[in-house]
Structures are given as structure tokens and as C-alpha cells.
Design a protein around this nucleic acid. Sequence first.
DNA 1: ATATTTTAAGACAAAAGAGTCTCAATAACC
DNA 2: GGTTATTGAGACTCTTTTGTCTTAAAATAT
Lengths: 159, 159
Amino acid sequence: MLLSKSCVYGLRASLFLATRDNGEYVPIRKMSDKLEISFHFLTKILQQLTAEGIMESFKGPNGGIRLNRNGAEVPLMDIVLAIDGSQLLTECALGLPGCGTKNPCPLHDKWAETRDGIREMLEETTLTELAEKGMEENLRLTTDGGFDILFNDHEDEPK
Amino acid sequence: MLLSKSCVYGLRASLFLATRDNGEYVPIRKMSDKLEISFHFLTKILQQLTAEGIMESFKGPNGGIRLNRNGAEVPLMDIVLAIDGSQLLTECALGLPGCGTKNPCPLHDKWAETRDGIREMLEETTLTELAEKGMEENLRLTTDGGFDILFNDHEDEPK
DNA sequence: ATATTTTAAGACAAAAGAGTCTCAATAACC
DNA sequence: GGTTATTGAGACTCTTTTGTCTTAAAATAT
Ligand code: SF4
Ligand code: SF4
């Protein structure tokens, strides 16, 4: 797999948060419910992201998590680096240690090119970009739920 | 990681075999020694590849493994598909099931493009191509050994 | 035939990744 | 102050991947 499960969950939650443009904190429980991710697992992942300064947390009622963008847009790369580290972008396709152009493996040229494609994609795509697109076209963020599920808050209430 | 450890080992061994253009069988023990891979682990991996018809095996003295190329060149993709399956090329970047253009996730367009880059690389690169390049330039196939180590057979013998 | 060299098959163990649970800390509300 | 809603931290379990070991089967050579 390209990205670890943790990383994918981190990205999904980040996209959720990117739909809230104000400073509103979203409780992890709400995100885990909407995104169908284990609450405790998501908590650990978001703790990593707040530790990295990508998000901010606040305890107690009306608390939760929000993006800590200081006006700047967040590229997907930030999330990936925070959770999966830089392996994907630095490691050898053949698993050899201390990769580099000095002592390359036979795959190096081709792999370096492919890897740059991945890097560019992650660097040039931002959370808000995807979140806006997702809201406009009601794209999928879960097995069968589009972005709209992030907003209709009381679908489980009794009528 | 892009490719599993098994897959990477399979590729390394495949490159080894691609340096033997005749029908010579190479014992797994020799490959595992030269490539610094656990013998038993490599055995299991090569069993998968022979089961898929990518390689041929022969038991007993002078036995071993050889590529089963019927004149055709083997793209890296064949090895990857045999060991890791098609996940990498078919699965969603956001881990959503039943991916497709009908009900896409917000990353789809960008990811599909990146994924095509990976696919092309694996499809258009062949074992013999890499093996020839590796031999010409003595590129790295192990932590600190180039392709030359695949040929000097008696380096461990007493003098 | 017997011993040797090799792959085949599968049980087993160790390590890493994914997921669950419990308890503590902090903040708000009454 | 006490209760409730929330994150924080860490132990713990389950699953998958990775790696090891043992035994069997096939081919060869003597
Ligand atoms: S030369 Fe390139 S492909 Fe080879 S090990 Fe180094 S980084 Fe990887
Ligand atoms: S639409 Fe594309 S990126 Fe999204 S889940 Fe499907 S294949 Fe993956």
C-alpha cells in the first residue's frame, strides 16, 4: 500500500476539518462516527497531527480538533510526512539502504522519476482544494457517504 | 512502502536470473547468499513466481530456478502482480472500497494520474533491460555489492 | 540401493501494523 | 463543588507481514 491506514485516516479527518473554514473545533467522536473510523484509533492519529502543529486541540465541552492553518493552505504532503514519515519519498525501490545517486541500484532512474510524480502530487494538492471540490460535487469520503454527511447533524435523532 | 518486502526480494532475484541468458538453473541457496536474503524466505517467494509460470524450477543437483521467458521479455509488473497483487494499481488512495470513476473520492483525479505513472513504469521496464544496464555499469543489487558479485563464484574459498 | 543436492510444503516464531480499552487531565456548565 | 464532555497517554490485544525451521519429495551420482 502506498499510504498506511493511519495516514489515510489522517487524510480523511483532515479533509473533514478543511470543510470548516472558521475556527470551530470538531470533536473526534463526531469525526470518527461520520468517517466510520474507530474513535480511539483516530484519536491517536490526531494526537500525532496536533503534536506536529498541523492541528490544534481543545479539551472539554465544545472542544475538539481544528486545523491550525495560519492563513496558509496545507498540502497533503504535510499529513503524510507527519504520519508515515519521509520513507516513501526517500527510500529505495529495491529496499537498499543509504540510497542515493552516488551508488544507485538499476531501478534508480525510473523510480526517481515515478517518485517525483508522487511527491509533486502530494505537495501540490491542498486540503482546502480537495475539500471545496468534495463539497461542490458531493464526492465520497466514506464507503457510501459523500461530503453532505458531514453537515446533516441529526440524522440519527428520533423524529 | 510501495512494494512489500517479498516483492522487492522477488525483483532482486529476478534481476539476478535475468543476468543468465542461457537456460542455466541457479540454486536458490546461491541467490540468497549473493543477495543477502534469507534462504527459506526467498524460497517461498520463488515458489510463488514458479507457480505463476514466471520461473521454472528443477530439483536435485544442478537444479535451481530460471526465468521461463519464452523469448519474451518480462516487465517488472509481472513480478509485482504475482507477489503483491493488483491492489497498488486498483485501490483507492483514501482506502475506500469499490473504487471507480462512478463514485469517486476527492483525490481520484490526481491519484489516478499518479497511479498511471507507477503503472507505466512497471509495465515498460523489463528485467533484461535492467539486468543489462546493471551489468554494464556495475550497479548495486545489495547493500554494498554491485552486479559483479553475481559472477565471481569462489570468493569465499580458501586459497 | 544409498547418499547428496536440490526444491516443495507447511508449521512455527518474531516483529510490525492496526485496533481496543482504561484511566487520567482539562475545560465548561450547573 | 460536582457532573459532563472532551482530549491525552499508555497498556493491551488482534492481525498481517516477515522470517525461521523441519520434513518430504525429486533428481543425480556413485
Ligand atoms: S538508487 Fe534510487 S531506486 Fe536505487 S536504492 Fe537508491 S533511491 Fe532507491
Ligand atoms: S475514486 Fe480514485 S482515489 Fe478515490 S477511492 Fe476510487 S480509485 Fe481511489
